[in-house]
Write a protein that binds this DNA or RNA. Structure first.
Lengths: 220, 220
DNA sequence: ATATATACCTCCAGTGCTGTATGTAAAGGG
DNA sequence: CCCTTTACATACAGCACTGGAGGTATATAT
């Protein structure tokens, strides 16, 4: 009963789906490969064929959503015209991404509330960490350009503004995933974000929609 | 070799200290009672005498810092004169608390990065959850009073301002504990917080110090 | 057509942890 | 001074999980 290459890939995806389900259900540490295998309709042998161990499974789960995020989010930062506008668009896209794609929400919920952040898991968290660092770095650069262009409102510096937005975004996602905000919480978060961004800038016009609102793969 | 009552209490505290150490080191799920006992210089028998199981140990660890937090933080909210000022003082006290008390940082770091947020652990998280809810509720009330008093700047409502600050504080602590910010990160966070609060208000004077700056038990 | 690599499954040995039951020696009350 | 309770230590039973060895049948290359 050996499978073809495409069947094998299908099995791999089913295992990843099952792992997500079990991780969310009982947490990464308590999740046994036996239980994941049962959920996927295979045996532990299949899992060990595709993945070395539980940690590699976790890494693969993270990697599955990583590409999507990079594609959606990197696009925003290509446009260098108006830095504050760019940051706002980026953040709105993040909210849009988490609001519309349950897969993304599940994976990040696993990171935040269903696993322990230990050195042995470092490889699994490498992607997430690099995305976080990229976000911080992009914020810093954008606000520095805004500062040099004289766009920042009184009372704000590039440092304080980027720190504030960084913490705001982190806390937003953390609360969302940890405490199961309502699904339409995205709306109120959007409004709060726009108020925050407006207070950063001198006279930035606030619109209700991000400029890059074509996310065909997310509007499901 | 039976101990006296005070010796027993000392043992209990040593077990809690050991549990904190082991939890931070290898995470709650991988931490065995055997290892914790060894760290405390007792056997598992002693742990089972004082606590029913690992979950109760975790609950006890949280409870140990809870009283301190309530004492320090509740005080700020007694003063109802200037709501925005009150909120600022409260937030500064939180930063001060986390900056000066390593014990607090350790326990919250365990919550954020060293354990899984599962229903079986619900009892352990009850305290933390109630503190979180209290924070959100206090923010909402304070900003509503500020709004009614016409203290909010243009572009902000009680809802958006409290949501924003709530996310900011959450993200601040989350990043601090998850990514091990430098110890003097507290300074930059204070500055960012003051800028944020300033932009909430119409013309609130920003001072560098909270009003209730007498924390004898924290300045160690 | 044959050989080999693939994609699994089954079984087994070993480990580590939990919870409990039992032992014990001293504290503390009457 | 005796009895009970306390504050542990020790010993035991049992489970759940991991990783690997070995099997098997089929896809795929030659």
């Amino acid at each position: 009963m050996r499978r073809t290459k495409s069947q094998s890939e299908e099995t791999r995806q089913r295992i990843l789906d099952a792992a997500e389900t079990v991780f969310i259900d009982i947490g990464v540490s308590k999740a046994s490969l036996e239980r994941i295998a049962a959920e996927a309709g295979v045996t532990r042998g299949a899992i060990y064929w595709h993945f070395a161990n539980k940690q590699e499974l976790l890494t693969a789960i993270f990697a599955r959503v990583y590409d999507l995020h990079v594609a959606v989010l990197a696009r925003t930062f290509e446009d260098a015209a108006d830095p504050l506008r760019m940051v706002l668009d980026w953040a709105l896209n993040v909210i849009e991404l988490f609001g519309s794609d349950e897969h993304t929400r599940t994976v990040y919920k696993i990171i935040v509330t269903r696993c322990e952040y230990l050195s042995e898991m470092r490889e699994a968290f490498t992607l997430q960490r690099s995305m976080h660092d990229t976000m911080v770095e992009n914020f810093r650069r954008a606000f520095e350009r805004a500062e040099q262009a004289g766009q920042l409102a009184d009372g704000w510096t590039a440092a304080t503004a980027s720190t504030t937005l960084h913490c705001f975004i982190s806390g937003l996602l953390d609360n969302w995933l940890r405490y199961d905000f309502d699904t339409d919480v995205a709306t109120s978060l959007r409004v709060a974000l726009q108020s925050l961004m407006a207070s950063f800038g001198r006279e930035v016009a606030v619109s209700a929609r991000p400029r890059n609102d074509s996310h065909p793969q997310l509007s499901g």
